[in-house]
Amino acid sequence: MIKILNVDYTSPSSITLEFSDGSTAIFDLQKYLSEHEGPLLQPLHDTAYAQRLFIDCGALCWPNGLELSPARLYEYTHSKKVA
């Protein structure tokens, strides 16, 4: 079971994720927000709020209860890599 071990908010569009398998990936938050919508995602358009991210039980979370699955983030970030 993959988990997120560390996160670093590097810019409004980049969050560096470190996974339990030793890999790292850049999660493009702005691209994700352009592809997904919902009431829990809306506050992430505010940079100050987006920076309040934290890890809980290996998942990427925000104070409003939003939790992004580490497995889905792993799939989302690793499927974009060019072989």
Rank of each mutant, 00 (worst) to 15 (best):
M1P: 09
I2D: 02
K3S: 14
K3E: 15
I4S: 10
N6W: 04
N6E: 14
N6I: 00
V7P: 00
V7N: 09
D8C: 04
D8I: 00
Y9K: 07
P12S: 05
P12K: 01
S14K: 11
S14R: 11
I15H: 04
T16L: 12
F19D: 01
S20T: 01
S20N: 07
G22I: 03
G22F: 10
S23Q: 13
S23L: 12
S23E: 14
F27R: 00
D28F: 04
L29K: 03
K31T: 09
K31P: 00
Y32Q: 03
Y32N: 03
Y32H: 13
L33P: 09
S34Q: 12
S34T: 02
S34L: 05
H36A: 04
H36Q: 08
E37V: 00
G38L: 06
P39H: 08
L40S: 06
L40F: 12
Q42W: 03
Q42I: 12
Q42C: 04
H45A: 06
H45G: 09
H45F: 13
H45T: 05
D46S: 13
D46T: 12
T47Q: 08
T47K: 15
T47N: 14
A48W: 02
Y49A: 03
A50W: 11
Q51L: 06
Q51E: 15
R52E: 15
L53K: 05
I55V: 14
I55A: 08
I55P: 03
D56S: 13
D56C: 07
D56T: 01
C57N: 14
A59R: 12
A59S: 15
L60A: 08
L60S: 09
L60N: 09
L60F: 07
L60K: 05
W62L: 09
N64S: 09
G65F: 08
L66G: 11
E67N: 12
S69T: 05
P70Y: 07
A71C: 07
R72S: 15
R72N: 15
R72F: 15
L73Y: 11
L73N: 10
L73F: 05
E75V: 02
Y76P: 06
H78A: 06
H78P: 00
S79Q: 14
K80C: 08
A83M: 08
A83P: 12
A83C: 08
